[in-house]
Design a protein around this nucleic acid. Structure first.
Length: 467
DNA sequence: AGCACA
């Protein structure tokens, strides 16, 4: 044909194929609709829909080439175009001879969903957000709404009604969860209703940035939950033991799917102090950890005779920077009071009482927040300057090490905090220049404010998505 | 409205 050369790749040069290429389909056309369309002409053995950037193309594969030819021929001479949902669909032979469905496990319906929480603060989303009662919520206008608190447009409303409460959860990491349903139908309805939805604000803490749910199928069929914890729940078994880590916030690693140890990042750090020959007080910790951002809360406690502390920052990023900078370093020269840091499972400490072992710096109560000048502890090494200590020194002295070298000295007040806490670096690979320096600005910043840029702002903290 | 697992 003479006209062929102008459009060589299109219609006139398409050799017949039992696979037809369809375009101009309505948005997210289903496999069922494709089968309906092709059925009058033969046996549809395979389909692929939602193809292309606009997801409005598809393929139909017939069992026999003649069936594909029949369909093309029919619509070539028909006055009625092929239609799906009233929309004209354009057909031609595909340039391939068979449909290759590379359905991954993420596409094959199952009873377990892999839920990825996307957003800046995805790691801060609590497991409780995914609880059945919330999943059962009502969806309107593209996001979950609170059934009682928000106006619901009943015209646009989908109600999720999971009759069987056979749901259990397993948090793989801070931002991923496996959610098991009793059957794949329930899982599918949950997936259809929730995939891509924004987690409503009322389910999140105030300081958590918006998060969306991304849901695919998991290859798992039955999750094994050994403990109820911050990261795993079995709602079918209320008598499941509670993990020790859920109670005392100790540093227990969660186990990933591959059996690899994972330590989910958190805005709360768990500090344990090694070789604590000198007192480490609340104020010392506050000063040290404030170098990286506002410290919201600190709780100190004894664990197996050693001092541990939980230090809460407003965000995970600050905690990460703080942990990276402080891990393995000593508060005092000479290898004394070496810090070991890990991420706590806590995200919000509950400080019942402000005292010398726990404090909530976000509560505006000058009498409580700053009852005494900050104590830097006694000064075993000259670089520590003049700061003193007002608490009982022996209280925190490491057992068996006797009295500290120097008696406690009264502090000169807030002004004493002008002396930077000199962090001693015992790691030959980290230059001392990277040591944090105390900043008065940070110390005097109103508590509870976020936005203090971390010293090492280049630190990446988001893992690339598993997709 | 024009060919997929990128």
């Amino acid at each position: 044909m003479a006209s062929v050369s102008s459009q060589p790749q299109f219609r006139y040069t398409q050799p017949p194929s039992k696979v037809l290429h369809l375009r101009n389909l309505p948005w997210e056309c289903t496999e069922e609709e494709l089968i309906e369309l092709g059925k009058p002409f033969g046996k549809v053995v395979n389909t692929k829909c939602n193809v292309g950037a606009n997801r409005n193309q598809a393929f139909i594969e017939f069992a026999d080439l003649n069936q594909a030819i029949a369909m093309i021929s029919y619509y070539a001479s028909s006055s009625e175009p092929a239609q799906v949902r009233g929309k004209t669909v354009y057909l031609q032979y595909s340039n391939r001879q068979e449909i290759v469905n590379n359905k991954t496990t993420a596409d094959i319906a199952g009873n377990v969903l892999l839920v990825t929480i996307e957003g800046q603060d995805a790691r801060l989303v609590s497991i409780d957000v995914l609880h059945l009662d919330h999943v059962k919520g009502i969806i309107s206008n593209g996001s979950l709404v609170h059934p009682e608190k928000e106006h619901i447009d009943t015209y646009n409303l989908t109600t999720l009604n999971f009759e069987q409460p056979e749901v259990l959860l397993w948090f793989v990491e801070g931002f991923e969860a496996l959610v098991q349903f009793s059957d794949s139908e329930t899982a599918t309805s949950a997936k259809n209703a929730l995939d891509g939805r924004i987690i409503p604000r009322y389910l999140l803490s105030d300081n958590v940035a918006p998060c969306t749910l991304k849901i695919t199928y998991s290859a798992h069929t039955d999750l094994s939950v050994k403990f109820q914890s911050h990261r795993s729940r079995d709602y079918t078994n209320p008598y499941l033991p509670v993990a020790p880590s859920a109670i005392d916030g100790s540093n227990q690693f969660s186990l990933g799917l591959d059996g690899k140890k994972l330590e989910p990042e958190s805005n709360v750090l768990l500090a344990s102090i090694e070789n604590m020959q000198y007192a480490v007080t609340l104020d010392v910790l506050h000063m040290v950890f404030s170098a990286f951002g506002p410290v919201q809360k600190i709780a100190m406690f004894d664990k197996n005779g050693a001092l541990q502390a939980l230090i809460q920052y407003p965000d995970v990023q600050t905690a990460i920077v703080s942990k990276e900078a402080l891990e393995g370093h000593c508060i005092y020269d000479g290898g004394f009071c070496k810090l070991h840091l890990s991420y706590s499972r806590h995200t919000d400490l509950s400080i019942k009482l402000n005292n010398d072992r726990s404090r909530d710096y976000t509560i505006a109560n000058p009498a409580m927040v700053n009852p005494q000048p900050p104590a830097l502890g006694q000064q075993p090494i000259q670089t520590m300057g003049q700061a003193g200590h007002q608490y009982n020194v022996t209280q925190y002295a490491a057992p068996g090490l006797g009295q500290p070298m120097m008696p406690p000295q009264p502090s000169a007040g807030w002004g004493a905090s002008a002396i930077p806490v000199q962090m001693t670096n015992h790691n030959p690979y980290v230059p001392p220049a990277s040591m944090p320096q105390m900043s008065h600005g940070m110390m005097q910043m109103p508590p509870g404010q976020s936005g203090v840029p971390p010293p090492a702002s280049t630190m990446p903290y988001f893992r690339p998505n598993h997709m």
